[in-house]
Design a protein around this nucleic acid. Structure first.
Lengths: 229, 229
DNA sequence: GCAAAAGTGTTACCGGTACACCCATGT
DNA sequence: ACATGGGTGTACCGGTAACACTTTTGC
């Protein structure tokens, strides 16, 4: 029996993903935004998105879109929330899944990003976005905080080698508050997820700060609590 | 300008929601399952679902489906995860959002549920489900635990008036472990979300246990932590 | 020597946990 | 009187927060 037309009396919709791409640079969390190249709202800032193709899951769509927009693969990403109000996109009915992604700014393909006219904005100073993209960003940031509170993120945003101060600043930025520096580094060392190197970064202090790297298993380890939310 | 056909070269899909309906009875968390009335996998157990209609968001679809299947409105529900693998439903490509919902077993329309041949199963003893519905249930339970850890749930699952022992049992059941009874009730009283009544339940003990009710504001209050996850 | 960032140490406090113990009452 | 679930009290332990203090080095 052929089931192909089983649900054919049911309505069908365009289904898309939108990517909330976070990067980190100069102690700032940044978001990658694109000038929309289609009406409606042509030219206004928006998230990069893409339609789900026949042979793709939404996750695969996101991987493809990220590859096409920042030139990277193997990106850390998570579903944020589905947006499905009938009138959310004035162009047509589009049901959209928001994904957030973490990338290393030093690795991405700058020329590719430029070719779209895309720009990195500090999350503290975002322009008005089209449609419901503001909501997507808000929820993505909350989800990122949620995740960062029980999973050590940083591997995805920091360079291969980094100082504890950089990681501390990253957490400060993500949560938009100041964690105590001493307590933060004690917590980190108790987690035993980082490997201290013998070389130091002397860029931001005279004394120099040891570089650290993530240990192998640190990848997807769930910790009870890194910081209080 | 008319944008209606703007994305017309993009593929379209059936979009559905599936409902993980939790109820609570006899110190057990239960899940409402339906015998599937369509091929493929006709007759096997499945979640209740429905296709998203032209004028509906996914949330509205879920509300409609719940109204039609258990006869209740104003149900607590949350998005769990989107499932979108191309081959997940052998009948046709269907992109599906899983929602979990909490209902009071004493309030739902039993005749309506019976008319579908649906049954309540304790979550500790579920039959094999169709497609990826097992995954949906698993993720829904994790999401429920997540939510229950920082938000007092119970209003949605327990009768209007309930004893602390009942609430304690509910949390034990949701997390499938034994919280210390004394500590649990101390935590609850410190949160100050419950109103003790003057009447007692003498059903399960000679001494009798005070009934409690949720205070007004307790609804969507976020607490730092009710129980450790 | 001094400024500035890196890194360590000290202490007080609060919340979670374990568990002992008392209470009320129907049988 | 005693068994049973309801309910309270207490003592310990570990994590967190606040903050003082030391180290290193370039200027």
């Amino acid at each position: 029996m052929n089931y192909l037309n089983l649900y054919q009396n049911q309505p069908k919709y365009n289904v898309a993903v939108d990517c909330i791409v976070f990067g980190y640079e100069n102690d700032e969390l940044k978001l990658l935004l694109y000038p929309r190249h289609l009406p409606p709202s042509q030219g206004e800032w928006s998230l990069m998105g893409g339609f789900v193709q026949e042979d793709e899951s939404m996750e695969e769509t996101t991987i493809r879109v990220l590859k096409q927009s920042v030139g990277l693969e193997n990106i850390f990403m998570e579903q944020v929330h589905a947006f499905s109000k009938p009138e959310r996109d004035p162009g047509a009915r589009v049901i959209c899944m928001a994904f957030y992604a973490l990338i290393r700014l030093d690795q991405h393909d700058k020329d590719l990003v430029d070719s779209y006219g895309a720009k990195w904005f500090p999350i503290s100073n975002l322009p008005k976005l089209i449609f419901d993209h503001d909501d997507m960003v808000k929820l993505a940031l909350e989800k990122l905080q949620q995740t960062a509170s029980y999973k050590l993120i940083g591997k995805e945003l920091l360079p291969e080698q980094f100082t504890l101060t950089q990681l501390h600043n990253l957490y400060n930025t993500i949560f938009q508050r100041k964690f105590d520096a001493g307590n933060f580094r004690k917590k980190l060392s108790s987690l035993n997820l980082l490997q201290r190197l013998t070389i130091k970064d002397t860029g931001s202090s005279k004394r120099g700060a040891y570089y650290y790297m993530f240990k192998e298993q640190s990848e997807d380890l769930i910790i009870e609590r890194i910081v209080k939310v």
